[in-house]
Structures are given as C-alpha cells and as structure tokens.
Design a protein around this nucleic acid. Structure first.
Lengths: 176, 176
DNA sequence: GCAGATAAGTCAACATGACTGTCCTTAATT
DNA sequence: AATTAAGGACAGTCATGTTGACTTATCTGC
C-alpha cells in the first residue's frame, strides 16, 4: 500500500509514504509513529553536531542558543521553563556561553532581579550557522512531503504536547 | 489563520492547528517544525520516565528494550546500528538488562558468533507497560489530528531521515 | 588447514549533561 | 521589616555517551 504524495512540489522527486490506514490507532501504526519520531528527531539534531564540536560546545549549548535567538530578551527563568532543566544545569551552560561571549545578560527593566538573555553578534553568527544545518534537513523533508503533509506533521506533534504546555509552544511562535 | 481539522474523529474535540502556508519553507515555518519536533519528542518519551525510575532504569534501557520487543532475535550488532551508539555503551545497558533477567541472549543459528536478543516474560511485561505510556500520548495525538494528518506526520519524519537510513526504518516496520 | 576478518565482551579513562542539596545576594512584594 | 522570588555558585552524584586496547570465538577465503 505505497502511493506517491501528489502534494509534493514538481521539482523534487516525491517521497513515497505508506498512508495511515483507517485503523490508524493499531499498535503497528503507533509504533511506526514512535520510531519515525525517534529517527527523525535524532537525524535532525545530529546535523549540527560537527559545528558544535568544532566550537567545543554540546547539544545543551545549542538548545540554549536556539531559544535565545528565537526570543531575544527572555529571562533565565523562562529559558529554564522551555528547556525543562534545573537552574544549576542551565547555569553551567550559560556560563560557558557568556565566557565565550556568545550570550550576554542584561538586568531586567520591569523586574531588576531578572537577567534577560541576548545573543552577541558572534553568538548570532554561530546560531545562524547551526540553524542553517537544521533548516537543511527540515526544508528537504518539508519539500519532499509537501505542504499538506507539513500541516499534518504540526498537528500530530502539537497533539503530543500535553494541553497545559501548548500555550507555551504557541507563544514561542506567536510574534515571530 | 486558525482552522479546525475536519479529518478529526467526531468523538474528540478537534485540534486547532495553523495550517502550513504556501510559503511553507519560510524560516518561521521551519522553526515551527524544529520546535514542535523538540517539544513533541520530549513530551512523548517523558511519559515513561516514572516507570523506568521505579525500576532503576534509564532511557537508554528503554530504547534497547523497545527495539528488542520490536524485533525479537535481532543481533547485538543490529541493535548497535539502530541505536547509533558504540558497543561499549550498549554493553553496559545490556548487562543491566540481563542482570535483571529482562533480556536474554541466544547464540545465533546461522552465525554462532552472534548473540541474538530476546525479551524474557518479565522483560516483555515491562516493555508492554512502557509501550502503553508512549501509546497513550501517540494515540491521543493521532486521534486529535486525524488520519490524514498522521500520513503527513510520517511523510515529513521519513523525509528527515537521510535517504541511506530509510531502508533500515522501513525494515523495522516491514513484517510487523 | 590456516590467515585474516568479523561479532561480541571487557576493562579503563574520560566527557557531557542531567540531578540534588545547600548557601548566598539582590530585589520585589506584602 | 519580613517574606518571597530570581538568580548565581559550590559540591557531589548519576546516566550515558565517547576512545582505545585487548580477548575470545567463529566465519570466510585462499
């Protein structure tokens, strides 16, 4: 039961996918989703590893850089919330990043206890290089699968996020 | 631009998703995919952590158990290939699992150098409990998003896997 | 039959990135 | 003025990955 995806752009060879059956909650189809999510996620993040290693940084640094790039001026506490790690764990990462002058911290305006995080120019340059790697994988996958598939991809992933976490994800994407 | 997904089953409240725009390769839509993949993946695997912790096991043990359950009788080398880790890393995990009598190893039939991996009854019981947790997340997400979205979800994820790795993923799902 | 390749196991040392717990400073809230 | 909250720092631990080196058993090609 393999078909061609008619929504794929004409300039790329369309990706053959087995469509979900009407019984798409069967164990086999659940396992297919689990496995594709695992392999797809690891394939995407692996793309940036070489750049990170050349800088002496790890994936934890990448995640922090990513979110600071996405939401310049977010507070340490907000970043802890997004990453789901402890203050102590993030502390080491942030110390590495400020020691290398990739991230800087400014005192909060409305609440002076907060430290707001920003990328330095060199931090922004590194994040851009890392993003380009992720983008390459993601753009290829989007292109092969087609616009309609992308909507489905988002819908299932958003469904995986527990309802009380969805607002946080949407907020990240709200104003660009 | 938020619409209801008409493919969602009638018995659940349909998940609102922002559909991909015709310009679905813009940076914002790429970032949306990166973020949803990150949050969706971590949300799914987090579900099993409590069970694992109660057994004194970690996520590495879970991954090994999962693939042995999925492909009983696979060799150590095949499992190393699926997990993308070294023999030494897997060795420790496998020692833990056989020490707890969750996995057993049998000498290969066609090649007696190989050790083929199987779950014991208690290993199968544990894997089933862990799977139920993942399934709960995934089935909810499938149900909210609808059958058509699931096909798109699979297509994009398969597109993320580099072409030379796709056969391995398909093989895992080939004969059930 | 033998040489070399392959599958697997093991030991050691080390890196990364989490965790807990505790203590401290500073600033906001009440 | 007292309490709470945001953040930083130090210490110790754990889980999970890495290299590298060595061993054993078995298979394969000549």
């Amino acid at each position: 039961m393999t078909v061609l995806n008619s929504a794929a752009p004409a300039h790329v060879s369309p990706l053959k996918v087995t469509p979900a059956s009407p019984l798409f909650l069967r164990e086999d189809e659940i396992r297919r989703g689990i496995e594709l999510l695992y392999f797809g996620y690891t394939a995407m993040i692996r793309g940036a590893d070489a750049i990170l290693e050349a800088q002496g940084l790890g994936r934890a640094h990448h995640r922090a850089l990513y979110f600071v790039a996405r939401r310049p001026g977010l507070s340490v506490g907000e970043l802890i919330g997004l990453l789901g790690i402890t203050k102590q764990s993030l502390g080491r990462v942030l110390n590495d990043l400020s020691g290398r002058a990739l991230v800087e911290q400014k005192v909060g305006t409305s609440d002076r206890r907060q430290r707001l995080l920003f990328l330095t120019p060199s931090g922004a340059a590194l994040e851009a290089r890392l993003f380009t790697e992720l983008e390459r994988s993601m753009a290829r996958a989007y292109g092969e699968a087609g616009q309609q598939a992308v909507t489905g991809f988002w819908a299932v992933l958003m469904g995986l996020v527990p309802p009380d976490g969805r607002a946080q994800v949407e907020a990240l994407q709200g104003q660009g």
